[in-house]
Design a binder for these strands. Sequence first.
DNA 1: CAATTTGGGCGAACATGTTCACTAAATAGA
DNA 2: TCTATTTAGTGAACATGTTCGCCCAAATTG
Lengths: 201, 201
Amino acid sequence: MEQPKGTRRQVQKAETRALILESARTLFGTQDYDRVTIRGVATQAGIGLGTIYKHFPNKLSLLAAAFSDDLKRLYRDAMATVPEDRPFKAQFVHISKRFFTFYTTHFSLSRAYLSHLFFYEKEWLDQINAFDEAYVQKMSELIRAGQDKGEIRPEKDADVLAMALLSNYFFVLANCFLREGMRDPDQMADMLAMLIEQTLL
Amino acid sequence: MEQPKGTRRQVQKAETRALILESARTLFGTQDYDRVTIRGVATQAGIGLGTIYKHFPNKLSLLAAAFSDDLKRLYRDAMATVPEDRPFKAQFVHISKRFFTFYTTHFSLSRAYLSHLFFYEKEWLDQINAFDEAYVQKMSELIRAGQDKGEIRPEKDADVLAMALLSNYFFVLANCFLREGMRDPDQMADMLAMLIEQTLL
DNA sequence: CAATTTGGGCGAACATGTTCACTAAATAGA
DNA sequence: TCTATTTAGTGAACATGTTCGCCCAAATTG
């Protein structure tokens, strides 16, 4: 009978990878990004230092891999639970607040991730851009629905507005990292709501 | 007669600092941020490694110090040459394009600077926030003038709009780092113009 | 002017992300 | 089944940002 998990080597590799990711999740979730060392992750996982680099090209990729499932789930959940009968502003705040909550509860981790965004290699960037585009497209749909409901001026270009939305979203997020006083999801959502009220509606 | 430059020690320290900054400007201007090593800066400046840390707390501060004069001059020039008789959009594009040109001609340097923004200590952040606030205030003035001229809806809050402007500005800038196709100042200015057309005017 | 303190300059030492040559076990090929 | 090849696993070695203790000339004190 054929093993669905592949060869023995593949199975073992997958197990090692799981060990690394578990250790990484624990450590990154506990201490600041800079405080977490690759050696620490290796030790806690019970494997050698070099092994980690057989699975992940660098520290940041390890971080990203350790939380990519969480982020994907967060994205799916946020989109799936959008209240369809509420006005556009409420819908957008709903989505944004979910993400803001994640960022503030994983503060140091998110900061490291976003900060290194600009240095990603092409492969990663493509993935991120794809993510962004999906987001923008979803927002476009919501905006068009808002235009149909008469909440948003119909002459505006929904795609451009969606981009502006993403822009405001990142701006609020950046503010959260730059100003100590802006690290509460509710406060961030308020700021975002204020911005889109003056620019979108 | 009293020396205006202070004690001999202060003069020598200032000279050393100037040597470091000159070396840093040369190296950071020539190669990527990561390729520039503190040892390299020290060697080129003809001083010891540890000396640099008597003048700058870390590599990024050195980078910032090396180009802070350029940036201040850029800011002053950009603001001083705003065409007063042109419409708001042209004024904003004028300012933004100056900055975009600087960023694209000092690409690696700007990327490192912006990326590390989120990790600054309080002192630096205060300085940056002050910078931002000055920018927002200036934008507020231009927006109000635009409202008086009838170009921008008068019922909008100029301060919030200025914040949205800053948000769009950073968004375009981030795009320049994330997408290879967006590294031309004219193109960036176009994207910015498109955004504010749909959100501000 | 002598004694003491200060602080700039210095490079060894340290921490840590990353690379590399090596081993051995798994796999493929004969 | 035996041999060759591949590759996960490994830790020493490397590169580099940063810290530390030392030195000594300048500044300060008395």
